[in-house]
Design a protein around this nucleic acid. Sequence first.
RNA 1: GCGCGCUUAGCUCAGUGGUAGAGCACAUCCUUCACACGGAUGGGGUCGCAGGUUCGAACCCUGCAGCGCGCACCA
Length: 909
Amino acid sequence: MLDKGGGLGQRCRPMSELPKAYEPQAVEAKWYAAWVDGNCFHADAASTRDAYSIVIPPPNVTGILHLGHVLNAALQDILARRARQNGKEVLWLPGTDHAGIATQAKVERGLREQEGLTRHDLGREAFLQRVWDFKNKHGDIIINQLKRLGCSCDWDRERFTMDAGYTRWVHHVFVELFKKGLIYRGKRMVNWCPISLTALSDEEVIMTAQRSKLYFMKYECVDAPGEFVEISTTRPETLMGDVAIAVNPNDPRYAQLIGRRVRRPFPAAEIPIIADDHVDMEFGTGALKITPAHDKADFEIGQRHQLEIIDVMTPDGRIHCPDCPELHGLDRFVARKKAAVMLEERGLLLKVEEYENNVGFSERGNVPIEPRISMQWFLKYPSVDEAAQAVASGKIQFRPKRWEKTYAHWMENLQDWCISRQLWWGHQIPVWYRKDLLDELKNAESLDTADHRDGRIYVGLDAPADAEQWVRDEDVMDTWFSSWLWPFSTMADLGESSPCLKKFFPTTDLVTGPDILFFWVARMIMASYEFMDDLPFQNVYFTAIIRDLKGRKMSKSLGNSPDPIDLMEKYGADGLRFGLMRIAPVGSDLRFDESSVEEGRNFANKLYNACRLRQMSGIGMQPLPAFELLRPYHIDVMAKLDDLSADLAASYAEYRFGEIAQRLYEFLWNDFCDKFLEAVKLDLRDSASEQQRSNTLGVFDAVMSRYLQLLSPYMPHVTEELSLRMEYVPSGAFLMQQPLPSRNLLENLDEVAIKRDRAIAASIYESAGRIRNLKAEYKVGSRKDVKLVIKGFSPWLEEQKPVLALLVGAAEILLDHSYQSPKGTPAAVTSIGEVYLPLDGLIDVDAERTRLTKEIQITRGELAKSEGKLGNASFVDRAPPEIVVQEKSRLQEWRDKLAQLEEMLAALA
RNA sequence: GCGCGCUUAGCUCAGUGGUAGAGCACAUCCUUCACACGGAUGGGGUCGCAGGUUCGAACCCUGCAGCGCGCACCA
């Protein structure tokens, strides 16, 4: 199955031919193809294994991969791969979203720029064909990028939110909710995007703090010329739509004004002064102009007082007011300034203040949305109580947990969802109007199930039989109205009893960004309860939001968003994955820096080179030697590997991905390479005995083969490659398919011996550090020809002498309990005894005295701290016994060390 | 305005009551037959501030400050 005859996977390749640095690109491409060929990612709905499933948050079909996707996808891939290792039948279901506004806008822009045409020039059908062409041309890009990253999705089950089958589901859901009376049409104040020319949901409006101006102006009283009412507004350009002035009924300043009339300056009109509780007496002048057509609050006040609605704006945000020719046709922001000038000319403008307020922006075009009255379809959310309860009760777990509160708050304050969009790309609303009633229906105040029953409109999955008598609603649905069905509509066609759905729904985990908690997560929960009568997923893991080093969001316009493909070219997919995981916190923001990816690449290289060292001694898995033959370094590294396995299992259970990466990193770099490999290097030299060599190789293989498996979910390519080269997996098998071993390496072995050997190894490693430190202080850190003398040592040290010599770089180590050091000999107190570094010609008694004195001071300080603690009766009486015992042994250590140091100092005198 | 979160080494961040940690960056040394995408050593922190609880607080509680993010119809 795999190319073992050539390329990088070749076995028994001479060391000299292996590149010194790991080159991920070819390896990664090769393995991805091999996994796909080997059908490794396919989920078998008929399997008897326990199911593990996860649906991808579908990226925009014409989008390109950004770091947010990488983080999200890598997390899912890690979960999926780990689940496979745990023996689960894994479905990771991939797909893409049609992304109504975004995709249509892209195609429209292309049309405008290249052909100078609008979508209306083409007509609906021809335009949609263009969008489909565009989708077919670009839809694979992001999918291929996910493959480049190593995502183990079941590509046989890839879905698109506008698949025929998927569309059927969306229409079905619309029809059902309509029949239940939850969907209705009405004329409401909606968020209108003057660029996209469509309504938006409340969630699509981004509130942004704006520096704007507050205009103070005055209206003259009709019955008392020369008497004015002062008001303040941020939007003088909507003045032509004013139909009233409102004051608070409890405001004594204005009590005598209520019911009187004032003059609107242009176009001239008399408008009433009304009283409404909504008006804040503290704000501005305490009087508010009411423009029901252009402000949500004003609209509501207008409704309460049956005020006229005067719309003075076009859909694209220009003033429409023929009675006011100076402003008619102007853009709303141009008109704002002009209106202020006109007020000033009439002596009605009092002052203009700088003012900061929040303005709703459209995601598209980055322009302020316009509150606008329009005819739209709305949904009253279904299964709200069940959905809220599912999270509150813990049936669905959010991680981090704090998002549960945000969710609960949103669920308690649901507003009807505006689901219609004035676009062409999307799922067209399955509502037909009777042709002969068209005008009447178009302007009907509301439409609902009653109109369907009466036969005035038709709502159904398919067009009515006498289609020519009907006209279909031209609007499409909000993209999220299809996305919210994703966890189940991807698994089964409508009405189908699908084995896939049966096996894999509800899904296990969902990995997504907290920014779409309302858009997507909450709505999926409601849709699943409504249409599947079950929860959609058991756990939701909210990823961090990726920012740059300055804390800014990644964005194209800022140019601070690195292209993940470039990063993969430079550092490899494994490097990118690992680097990102290592800095991924459990939920807050993640500040991205390319250096972390570089670290990931370096880590892969470290691993590769550790294996290269092993390959110098040939390949082929060596058996683990008998326990009695193992040396402390062997036992130590095996015990640490066992600890690692346990720690990772615990961290996976809590979805602590950064911690897992950190542990994997520490083990390989610190424990395995810096300590173990350095300690056993002698066994791999030509001078070593065959027994020594095979023992150490056996331990290397036992530990490394398991380690590669543990690392595999994070760095699937390099681990697969190395497992093949080292022959750690049976021929033709894949590492990614091997179940995790059920037994630890040191399970059921002599615990006392293990403990003793680990202590010896720890002691050697710790002492080696102290000795290297001593050498560095005396500027012989790099010399290998130094001699050491150790006194006060344990009996086992004799056997470990060669290892210690290698670790510290010493030519000779003399063990001598009765050693009398020449005056000024550098020395250190270590856990293996007093270590002397006789340096002919370098001995400086004064320097050594100074150094020792300093160390004695430090030790005395620590000793005093410890004594102080133990001298405190309340500590001894009230602290837990084990803490007291620990403190006592610490005290003894300081005392011993101090005694030794003082002895050394005395010897100098 | 309400809610949530953050504040620990120059930077990015771990650290759920018991001697303050990692990576990067920095300094010195080392191109020794796995790795310079490397090795060794080192400097660097009154853990935002002020109180409290405790034998003991980076950690728990209260208040304050700064930053960030949600939610909200102050024009």
